[in-house]
Design a protein around this nucleic acid. Structure first.
Lengths: 407, 407
DNA sequence: GGTATTATGTTGCCCTAGCCAACAAAAAGA
DNA sequence: TCTTTTTGTTGGCTAGGGCAACATAATACC
């Protein structure tokens, strides 16, 4: 935490008036508290460089707003008067929605990072966007009744396995689901009356791992997520989510790494997604469907030479892809999620060797490859970050809705 | 210029005290003036959202510091009192250095973007880093005597055809020059007594085109530069230069796009740089050495089927690479420089078709491919941005050296 | 156990930098 | 010439962060 302030870019940069200073300081504090769960006031002081008295003032404003609570330190350490601990409040809640081919999962997450509820609604294969919206809205409605009356709702975050135009929350293409140009955001917002933020699932996973998982604290991150629907990717550049002009950035699975004619789920050939396929492994193991855990078991336990070859080919292809990302992004850490973690566990040395061979020394010498840490909560926690982000940016002015209307 | 303020990232973010507000506002103003050359005070007012009187105060501080001059509008337009024009001063100067295999080029650029002097010092093939430093220092020394006594020097920017560790200005690897782990920055700083900033040439070119050339005003940019030393790349993400953890980011030429065994200048195979080679074209034209203009002539004039095939293969390879970058970055614009502009001019439709085929629709539908605009001044102007950047970040506090010592 | 030391929370006052309102100035239009 | 419109200028206002003095709560030392 000792870097200088991120320089504001001229493009779109404004002057700071006094109000913005206050807003910025409240925002920085609440973000720190959100990311760490609990922080002492004294560490807030040293981290921000602000005066003790200013921190005191800011924290009490956050407290009045209901975002944080202050407690005395349970186990004081070191000399001097023990500092008060500031904790993110459970009062503020966001909902997460994750539509899949056969189900839509809904969760409720607190600003402190606790997953309060999580519910997976099974649906007929290939639900329409509206089917998913209706199902999600119903669960959210019921979850709202289970919250305390005065709890505050930040909004809904939606993780889509496909490309999302972020500016208006429209799903451009979700190949698995068969959705094209679906205004999921406005539909769900209409039904629930809550602000909705939609983004790509891998980008959301990337942000979650950066904030709370394996890439915590890093500012240059590459994230790869592989599930039954192909390979998604995300990246953190300069500490910020790579989004691109419209939000389609970070499609790392669709980067061409070879001349194979196999096509990926989006119809592109020779891409990472076309060469590293979960389905191919399932087929090799003669499985029809399997959880990542079951697949992982089989991959670890395997001894057949033929299957070994398939796995090794996939590792090599993954290594080729990662090498390119290393050259492009010069990241501090690469986080693998989904069944890619099984490939990493199967033969980490082989993967690292491949990366070294395909990447420039300067970049590859510092990079670390890790497995994701957040597991099944990844997208629940990650999607909730979207509405929280709005609150964190401007704590004092963002109006939140109460869980239930007062009579 | 209507976007909200770039959110400060929590990682490394600090609180804002009053001094920082002033610094930030001075910085924003000076950046705008630097980018536009001349801006009216009224447009500064609307662009920053600050009050008229505040702008007045800030501009006069910048004027006292010697960074800008105010003049009355030459040709007033519209009703109302004409606004004063604020112009970047010629008083502040930065030097640019660009070492190549056979020469080291040195330039002097003003904050207003004017190239005052430019000098190419021919050298024996493969000069050592020290050779280049000594040559550059000599030219800089002589240029200083040609400046006015009271002109201010922001520092020296160095564009290296190779990988640079930005934090300590060390050239990690410059294959063409044969340099490995050369502390070019500290060497040149030692000799000249000026602050030195070293970076990769393509990254510098990218920044220059974003600030003053074909990608002006865009915040999501991909830049590809091809010369005799291979293909360099740069990217602007979220309005900021893609640097990565140590500054090696943006090596787009070394991204694997095929299974060819041809190796590039860094020993990687199947990369864009190994498939799109200036030398291959020169060889086809039976030329030994040629300027980009000569090569361009030959490419345009060519009718031989064999050579046509070579050119088309290179265009196809370039298209494959760009398609991947489109999927990764979802850029607004792609800028091509060096002999890549000749490929673009030769058959733009073919290139665009290739990109469409290899990229996701959502991303490829908005992207534009352009030629670079800055020509031979590209690296001079771009490298000068490095020392200017330090000044622009903190105009009031950055101490500058006068061109010549006063007696 | 009493005192010194250290670190933190609290309070009241200060100061800076941006805002605001009133006025002046300079252009175009009627 | 007078009005309208836009911008520069000036002096006073105010919000919010800094600062210093004091209070408080822990450890360290004798």
């Amino acid at each position: 935490m000792n870097k200088p302030i991120t320089p504001l870019q001229t493009t779109g940069a404004r002057g700071s008036n006094r109000d913005l200073v206050r807003q910025h300081n409240l925002s920085v504090l609440l973000q720190m508290i959100h990311l760490h769960g609990t922080v002492s006031r004294s560490s807030l002081t040293s981290a921000t460089g602000l005066n003790r008295s200013t921190i005191s003032d800011l924290v009490s404003e956050l407290q009045e707003l209901g975002f944080v609570t202050e407690t005395e330190s349970a186990s004081p350490t070191g000399v001097g008067r023990p500092s008060l601990m500031v904790t993110a409040s459970n009062k503020v809640v966001a909902f997460s929605v994750h539509p899949e081919v056969d189900a839509t999962t809904v969760g409720a997450v607190t600003l402190s990072g606790k997953v309060l509820f999580s519910e997976r609604v099974l649906m007929s294969k290939h639900p329409s966007a509206n089917d998913s919206v209706q199902a999600a809205a119903k669960v959210i409605e019921s979850m709202r009744t289970r919250l305390d009356k005065d709890q505050l709702i930040a909004g809904i975050g939606v993780a889509i396995p496909g490309q999302v135009r972020v500016e208006d929350n429209v799903v451009r293409l979700a190949p698995q689901l068969g959705w094209v140009e679906q205004p999921y955001g406005s539909m769900l917002s209409q039904v629930t009356g809550l602000p909705v933020f939609v983004d790509n699932d891998a980008s959301i996973g990337c942000m979650a791992e950066r904030n709370f998982g394996a890439a915590r604290g890093f500012s240059e991150v590459v994230f790869l997520f592989a599930g039954s629907g192909g390979i998604g990717g995300g990246a953190i550049v300069n500490g910020m989510q790579l989004r691109g002009a419209s939000g389609y950035g970070g499609e790392l699975g669709h980067v061409r790494i070879g001349e194979s004619n196999d096509k990926d789920y989006s119809g592109l050939s020779g891409t990472l997604e076309s060469l590293v396929r979960r389905d191919d492994l399932l087929q090799a193991f003669k499985m029809f469907a399997a959880t990542d855990e079951e697949l992982d078991q089989d991959i670890r336990g395997n001894k057949s030479a033929k299957i070994q070859k398939i796995i090794e080919n996939q590792i090599d292809a993954l290594g080729n892809g990662i090498a390119s990302y290393v050259n492009i992004f010069n990241p501090e850490v690469i986080v693998l999620a989904g069944f890619l973690t099984s490939l990493l566990a199967y033969d980490e040395q082989r993967l690292l060797k491949r990366i070294k061979e395909g990447a420039l020394n300067a970049s590859s010498e510092i990079v670390v490859v890790r497995s994701a840490e957040l597991g099944s909560d990844l997208l629940m926690i990650g999607a909730a970050e979207l509405p929280f982000h709005r609150v964190l940016e401007n704590p004092a002015e963002t109006k939140l809705v109460t869980a239930r209307k007062r009579r």
